[in-house]
Design a protein around this nucleic acid. Structure first.
Length: 472
DNA sequence: TGAAATGTTGGGGCG
DNA sequence: ACGCCCCAACATTTC
C-alpha cells in the first residue's frame, strides 16, 4: 500500500471543493490533521467567538471525515513540530495544505515547509480559501490593486474562480494512527460564565449547515439581495460570513452557485464576495494591514484615549439607538448586520474619535466571522486610511442611517428593548423627542436609557477638524 | 457603501 | 396681468 498523505486542515474545514484533500485522496491513504497553533498567530489567535465556532466546526469536520472513512487528528502547539512528527511516524512523503493570506500563517507555512523538507517530506500547497492567486492577479503594470472596482473587473475578466471539486467519495486511512488530542481538552468553549447561549441560538457551525444556509439564501433571498441587504430589520443577507471564515464552504462554491442565476441581486452578491477577496488581496500585499494605516498620512493622527467612551460603545450604551442595537446584536449573537457595522464603526472612529484599532480588536474578539483580512481592511476603510477607502469627511449620521434603513425601528426595538415603547421618530433619536413622547414610552433619559455620549453635530465637527489637522 | 451647506428653479399665494 | 416673495424640491459643492 502506498504511503499515506497528510492533509493539513487550516481555515478550510470542509470536504467539498477541497483541493488539498482531493489531491491527497487521489494519492492513496489519507491522514487529516488540524493543528491549533496559537503561538504562531500571536495577537491574532482566534478570539472568544471564533474559538466557540472553531470547536463546533471541528466537531462537524470530524463527523464528515469519519463518514468518509478517516479520522481527524488534533494537535496543539507548533505546527511544524507536529506535522513533521506525524509525517515521519506515518511514513508520509507529502503534506497537502491550503494557503492562507494572514502574515502569521504565511510565516508558519514557511516553517512547516522547512521542517518537512528536513524530514524528507514535501509540502504541497493548494488554493482552498481564496478565489484567486493573489500574486497573479495584478494591474497592467504588474502591481497589486489599490482600487476595488479595478480589482473586481480583473476578477470578472479572469472568468471567475475555477469550478468547485466534489468531495472524495471515500477516504482510506492508514491502519496505524498517530495520537490525537481530545477536542474538549482545548478549552475552546466558554465555561464560567457561559456567554455562548446567544451564539447557540443564532448559529449552526459546520459544512452541512453552511451548505443549507447557502441553499436557503439562493432560493429565498438572492433575487432581492441588492436592496434587502441594506436592511438590518429584515433577513436579507446570506449570513455565510462565519462559514466562509473557517472555510466550511468554499468561496468558489458560493460564487458558482450565485453566478448560475444572472440577476441584479446575484451581481451585487458576487460583488460582496469580491470585497472579501479584495481584503485578502490587500492583506496579502500589505502584511501590516491589521496594525498600521495603509495611508501613512494617518500615522500621526491624534486619537482620543477615552476608556469610558470605548466601554460604552462596546456595551451598547452610547445613547445612539442604532449604534447600541448593533453593538448589542454583536455581543448577543456574535454577528452584526453589515450596514450597522459601518454605522457603529463610523461612530467610534469619527464621532468618538477613538483609534480604529480599538474597534478592530473588539470585533476580533466578539465576531463569529472575525477574519483578519476582512476585519482590518474594513476598519481601515471606515477610518479612511485604507486602500480605496471612504474619504475622511464621509461621516455617517447614525440617526439618518437608522431612519433610512430601519424606518419602523424593528431592529432597534429588538436589541434595545428599553426603547421599545417609543414610536418611530422618537425611537431613532430619543434626545430630540418631546418629553411627553418619552414619558408615554416609559423612557427616562439618563435613567432607563443613556443620554447621547456625544452631540452628533459637535462630534462630526470635531472629527472633521482632527482629520484635517492630521493631513488626512 | 454620506451629510450638510449652498445654489437654483419653479409653482403658487398675494397685493 | 404682473411682480414679488416664499419655500419646497432638486442640484451642486463642500466638508
Amino acid at each position: 500500500m502506498a504511503a499515506p498523505a497528510l492533509v493539513w486542515f487550516r481555515n478550510d474545514l470542509r470536504t467539498e471543493d477541497h483541493a488539498a484533500l482531493a489531491a491527497a485522496a487521489a494519492h492513496g491513504s489519507v491522514l487529516p490533521v488540524f493543528v491549533l497553533d496559537e503561538a504562531a498567530a500571536g495577537a491574532w489567535a482566534p478570539g472568544g467567538a471564533s474559538r466557540w465556532w472553531l470547536h463546533h466546526s471541528l466537531t462537524a469536520l470530524t463527523g464528515a471525515l469519519a463518514r468518509l472513512g478517516a479520522p481527524l487528528i488534533l494537535r496543539r502547539g507548533p505546527a511544524e513540530t507536529h506535522l513533521a512528527e506525524i509525517a515521519v511516524t506515518a511514513g508520509a512523503a507529502e503534506v497537502h495544505a491550503g494557503e492562507m493570506p494572514e502574515p502569521w500563517a504565511r510565516s508558519q507555512e514557511k516553517r512547516v515547509a522547512r521542517a518537512l523538507r528536513e524530514a524528507g517530506v514535501r509540502l504541497v500547497r493548494h488554493r482552498t480559501a481564496m478565489l484567486f492567486d493573489q500574486d497573479r492577479l495584478t494591474t497592467k503594470s504588474a502591481a497589486p490593486f489599490q482600487v476595488y472596482s479595478a480589482f473586481a473587473r480583473a476578477c470578472h475578466a479572469a472568468g471567475g474562480p475555477p469550478p468547485p471539486l466534489p468531495a472524495p467519495a471515500r477516504l482510506d486511512a492508514p491502519a496505524m494512527l498517530p495520537r490525537s488530542d481530545a477536542l474538549d481538552g482545548w478549552g475552546l468553549l466558554p465555561a464560567k460564565p457561559d456567554w455562548a447561549g446567544g451564539l447557540r441560538a443564532a448559529w449552526v457551525p459546520g459544512e452541512a449547515a453552511a451548505r443549507a444556509r447557502l441553499d436557503a439564501f439562493l432560493a429565498a433571498l438572492l433575487a432581492g439581495y441588492a436592496a434587502a441587504r441594506d436592511r438590518p430589520d429584515a433577513d436579507g443577507t446570506s449570513r455565510l460570513s462565519p462559514h466562509l471564515r473557517w472555510g466550511e464552504i468554499s468561496p468558489a462554491t458560493v460564487w458558482h452557485a450565485a453566478a448560475a442565476t444572472p440577476t441584479a441581486g446575484a451581481a451585487k452578491f458576487l460583488g460582496e464576495l469580491l470585497w472579501r477577496e479584495f481584503s485578502i488581496h490587500l492583506l496579502w500585499h500589505n502584511p501590516a494591514l491589521p496594525e498600521r494605516p495603509l495611508r501613512s498620512a494617518f500615522a500621526g493622527m491624534q486619537w482620543r484615549r477615552d476608556a469610558a467612551a470605548l466601554r460604552a460603545w462596546q456595551q451598547g450604551r452610547t445613547g445612539i439607538p442604532i449604534v447600541d442595537a448593533g453593538m448589542r446584536q454583536l455581543w448577543e449573537t456574535g454577528w452584526m448586520h453589515n450596514r450597522v457595522r459601518m454605522i457603529a464603526a463610523s461612530f467610534l472612529v469619527k464621532h468618538l474619535l477613538i483609534d480604529w484599532r480599538e474597534g478592530e480588536r473588539w470585533f476580533w474578539d466578539t465576531l463569529v466571522d472575525a477574519d483578519l483580512a476582512n476585519n482590518s481592511a474594513s476598519w481601515q476603510w471606515v477610518a479612511g486610511c485604507g486602500a480605496d477607502a471612504a474619504p475622511y469627511f464621509r461621516i455617517f449620521n447614525p440617526v439618518l442611517q437608522a431612519r433610512k434603513f430601519d424606518p419602523e425601528g424593528a431592529y432597534i426595538r429588538r436589541f434595545v428593548p428599553e426603547l421599545s415603547g417609543l414610536a418611530a421618530p422618537a425611537l431613532h433619536a430619543p434626545w430630540e423627542a418631546p418629553p411627553l413622547a418619552l414619558q408615554a414610552g416609559g423612557v427616562v433619559l439618563g435613567r432607563t436609557y443613556p443620554a447621547p455620549l456625544v452631540d452628533l453635530v459637535a462630534g462630526r465637527a470635531r472629527a472633521l477638524a482632527a482629520f484635517a489637522a492630521a493631513g488626512a
